[in-house]
């Protein structure tokens, strides 16, 4: 079994020669639909004493809100819709990826890079809109001796430019590697069970490991959504308060 096969994009309905509705697009639509339905249906009753579903939605909201407040301050709350949408989208697409037969959208570098590019362009546009050229003070750390300044500015610029790359590759690589590892260990079970009586006895070992890996991947799926949201807040904080 080819472990890469699960990431293969197939066109479901061709629209033009090169554009079509793919399985990747289908699961992105599904994720957005599930996220919207989850948040709207659970908060429609607006009970003072929340039920199970409403408290789920409120917990999710409060969790992201406290993340935004702690890393970007109260001024960062105007970006709460952006951060919350990103968090819910990444969380639900990650968790969708864990369902057997579903397509892992976040294991496509182009998807994660588009999300990261959205975050970084928001930072750059808002930074220049709010602070004008003062935004460039982001690259000039204060309290650095003059002879060290050119080096520090170069390092700061490189670190800023590499942010969309590291933000997208972190999510993409985690999802890709996790799914490939799962597939490889799952294929060990079949290979060992089919190879003979002696190897069939030890075939439960990779099975146990696969179960442990599923648990780890569920943790990673939630954690990477959290990390994506937190880093978004950290980067937005630079747009809100440039200059160290």
């Amino acid at each position: 079994m080819d472990p890469i096969h699960q990431f293969h994009i197939t066109t479901l309905f061709p629209i033009t020669h090169s554009i079509g509705f793919t399985n990747s697009a289908l699961f992105m639509f599904l994720a957005v639909g599930v996220a919207a339905l989850l948040m709207m249906a659970t908060t429609s009753s607006r009970a003072i004493v929340p039920g199970r579903w409403q408290s789920l939605a409120e917990t999710l909201y409060e969790f992201v809100a406290s993340t935004v407040r702690s890393s970007a301050g109260n001024a960062g709350m105007k970006f709460m819709p952006l951060v919350f949408s990103l968090f819910m989208f990444v969380l639900i697409t990650n968790l969708f990826g864990m369902v057997p037969g579903f397509f892992a959208v976040t294991a496509q570098i182009i998807v994660t890079f588009a999300l990261a590019a959205l975050v970084i362009s928001t930072v750059i546009i808002y930074g220049f809109y709010k602070h004008g050229t003062h935004f460039l003070h982001l690259f000039v750390p204060s309290g650095v001796p003059g002879w060290l300044l050119p080096l520090m500015v170069a390092i700061e610029v490189i670190s800023f430019v590499s942010r969309p790359l590291s933000l997208s590759v972190r999510l993409f690589a985690n999802m890709l590697a996790g799914h490939i590892a799962l597939k490889i260990f799952a294929s060990f079970i079949v290979a060992l069970a089919g190879a003979g009586v002696l190897t069939a006895i030890i075939s439960p070992l990779p099975f146990a490991l696969t179960i442990a890996l599923v648990a780890l991947e569920l943790l990673v799926a939630v954690l990477q959504a959290y990390v994506f949201a937190t880093l978004t807040c950290v980067y937005l904080n630079d747009a809100l308060h440039p200059g160290h």
């Binding site: 590759v169 972190r170 690589a173 985690n174 890709l176 590697a177 990673v220 954690l223 990477q224 959290y226 990390v227």
Partner: peptide, 13 residues
């Protein structure tokens, strides 16, 4: 943990 683990994942990638 997630930030550190990602670097190991990069080499796996």
């Amino acid at each position: 943990f997630a930030l550190t683990e990602a670097l190991g994942i990069f080499s796996l990638l």
